[in-house]
């Protein structure tokens, strides 16, 4: 019994040290890099959070959610509308907006949580496009195709650095909550549902109910990401609900690795950096992005985190002391 505890403890030690190092770099980064990179880092954090929310259903739940742009847009539009139309204080609007996303997730989830595979993906896509249409048509509330611009932000967050640190704090808290959820009995039950939903029903696990709750939680955190983006960018547009955005979230999960908690964050980093470099280099950047996605799916199906785990495990075969020290990663 003590074997289990000590194994995971030594395995975590290395991860905690590495994570602390990354956090220090993130905190000090605005002092060393130009504002352009701080803006980029903010966008990476927000997109990474959205990806991690999607991964709650994809990597840990075994579903393919292809409509999470709906919750991202709900978080964004709820923030903007509460500030501009309802006169809410921006911070209070930011706190309320994810709950709107969770409510929309609760409504969509009543249908989606019962579905599997292809049907799950297509119905979630259909629902998000429904929301996109509503956003575009309801121009009195949402600004229609023009979106909502000039949204007031939280008063102390004027300036790029302050927005960045706010995003860092919110994303850090969200990651901590997601980590708690993933390692909780609920998180492990979701993994079991991913592995074998039939066996779960014979273990008295209500598969539909668990998938529904996971769907609502995922919608909530995607709403946080959407709300954060409005606080950062002071605007929101209908294409935040478009299916391409949902595709982006799935792409960064696959790119970064769906079996690691921070995989989507790595994926967001690579995705946004690649996008920035390619758009600055060539007008045909979409072709190269497409080739890159194909290469990842064919050569690295478990993403960057999965590739890293494979390399580390191969390394431990040659050097057994790594296994003993707890640096070797076991199967997810």
């Amino acid at each position: 019994m003590s074997k289990i505890f000590s194994y995971s403890f030594t395995r975590s030690y290395f991860k905690y040290v590495f994570s602390a190092l990354i956090l220090i770099i993130l905190i000090l980064q605005p002092f060393f890099l130009p504002p352009f990179w701080t803006c980029l880092a903010t966008e990476i954090l927000i997109m990474g959070l959205a990806g991690m929310s999607v991964n709650l259903l994809l990597g840990y739940g075994g579903s393919l959610p292809f409509g999470h742009a709906a919750f991202y847009a709900t978080g964004a539009y709820a923030t903007a509308i509460l500030i501009q139309k309802a006169g809410f204080h921006p911070f209070f609007a930011f706190l309320c907006a994810p709950f709107f996303a969770a409510i929309i997730g609760g409504v969509f989830g009543l249908v989606i949580a019962r579905l599997y595979r292809f049907y799950y993906a297509m119905i979630s896509l259909a629902f998000s496009m429904l929301l996109w249409t509503i956003i575009r048509k309801w121009s009195s509330m949402t600004g229609g195709d023009d979106g909502l611009t000039g949204v007031d932000t939280i008063p102390i967050l004027t300036g790029i650095n302050n927005s960045y640190y706010f995003a860092l704090i919110v994303v850090f808290i969200s990651i901590a909550l997601l980590w708690i959820i993933i390692n909780s009995p609920f998180g492990w039950t979701m993994r079991a549902i991913r592995e074998n939903p039939v066996r779960c029903t014979f273990t008295s696990i209500s598969v539909v109910r668990h998938r529904y709750v996971a769907f609502v939680i995922s919608a909530f955190f995607t709403g946080v990401a959407g709300a954060l983006f409005v606080i950062y960018s002071h605007s929101t547009f209908p294409d935040y609900a478009y299916w391409v955005k949902s595709g982006d979230f799935v792409a960064i999960v696959i790119l970064g690795g769906m079996f690691a908690l921070l995989g989507p964050m790595i994926g967001a980093c690579i995705w946004i950096l690649l996008h920035t470099i390619l758009t600055a280099s060539t007008v045909y950047w979409l072709i190269f992005m497409g080739i890159f996605i194909c290469a990842v799916v064919l050569l690295m199906p478990e993403g960057v985190a999965g590739l890293y785990a494979k390399i580390r495990n191969q390394y431990t075969l040659k050097y057994p002391f790594l296994e003993l020290s707890g640096l070797a990663k076991k199967e997810p």
């Binding site: 708690i180 390692n183 909780s184 009995p185 609920f186 039950t189 668990h210």
Partner: peptide, 8 residues
């Protein structure tokens, strides 16, 4: 199985 704020 629905508990969230506990370590499994």
């Amino acid at each position: 199985s629905f508990k969230i704020f506990q370590s499994a």
